[in-house]
Amino acid sequence: MIRIHFQHKLDELRERLLVMAGLVEQAIDRAIEAYDNRDASLCDLVLMAEPAIDRTEREIDQLALDILAMEQPTAVDLRFILAVIRINADLERVGDQAVNIAARVKELQAIPEADLPIDIPKIAEIASTMVRMAIKAFIDRDEKASNDVLLMDDEVDKLNHDAFHTLGELIKSKPDVTQQALNALVISRNLERVGDHATNIAEDVIFWVSGADVRHHASAMTSLPDQIAEA
């Protein structure tokens, strides 16, 4: 009976995290669509969703801490709880990036549109795909899919770096589009951060499933202490 109660708590923690993931996915998708269509109503929906995301983050953290305090999880169960705590924090930060993008889109609406030589939609597509893949990897306990997310991070980093260089040169040659370029630059950076958080989530899935610490793209996986890493 004790084990069944403990398993129910773990199941509840997992379901709460999936609710959080759904809220955050919706927020980032709406923010990207708001940028594509210059849609203020979508921006408002993103901003209105932030309190629910923050509240859900706090509830998940509290539940995880309660489980740690009341139970004595070992091995894979302990890794699961620790991974949930870290994934929860990264999801909340993806929500923050969605809010930042929505705020920038509102600023762009107040100024004339400009033809900027960068592909924000491509950066957005890759970053949002990384989030979806990382969450699905969590659901499926899929280490291979998690590694696929890690490989995508370099592409987002490169696109953001290229955008920084291109927009910097554009501002020098066309000062009249400085405001538009700076807002696009910030949005590109926000999307790059979304990719970083998706990478963190994928790393935590690997940590949960295998006990391997692959943070910072370490060239060799390092094992955690035996009491945590031993499955």
Rank of each mutant, 00 (worst) to 15 (best):
E155A: 11
I120R: 11
K136A: 03
E107S: 11
P117L: 01
A124E: 09
M133K: 15
I135R: 05
D142I: 08
D176R: 10
A145D: 07
E125A: 13
I139L: 03
N160T: 12
N160E: 14
P112D: 10
A145E: 11
D119S: 12
H161E: 11
N160G: 02
P112H: 09
L167F: 08
A137P: 04
I139M: 04
S128Q: 09
K144G: 02
Q179E: 12
D119A: 07
I135D: 02
A110L: 14
E169W: 00
A163L: 13
N147E: 13
A114V: 01
E169H: 11
P117Q: 06
S146R: 03
E125R: 13
R104L: 11
P121I: 02
V105Y: 13
L150C: 05
E143F: 03
D157G: 08
L167M: 09
D153I: 08
L150A: 02
D153A: 05
Q180G: 12
L170K: 08
T178F: 01
V105Q: 13
I187W: 10
F164H: 11
L170W: 04
I139K: 06
V149R: 08
D154V: 13
Q179Y: 08
L170H: 06
K172A: 12
N183A: 02
I111W: 07
R141P: 00
P112Q: 11
I118L: 09
D162A: 04
M152T: 03
E125C: 07
K106C: 06
V177N: 03
I111A: 03
I118M: 08
I120Y: 12
T178M: 12
S173P: 03
D148I: 12
N183Y: 15
I187G: 12
T129C: 05
L116R: 05
A134L: 02
V177Y: 05
K106G: 03
D154M: 10
N183M: 03
R132C: 02
D153Q: 11
R104T: 01
M152H: 09
D153T: 06
P175W: 03
D142H: 07
Q109S: 06
I118F: 01
M152L: 15
D176C: 01
G168L: 01
I139A: 01
E143Q: 13
M152R: 14
D153C: 07
D157Q: 11
R141Q: 13
G168F: 03
T178R: 04
A184E: 00
D115A: 13
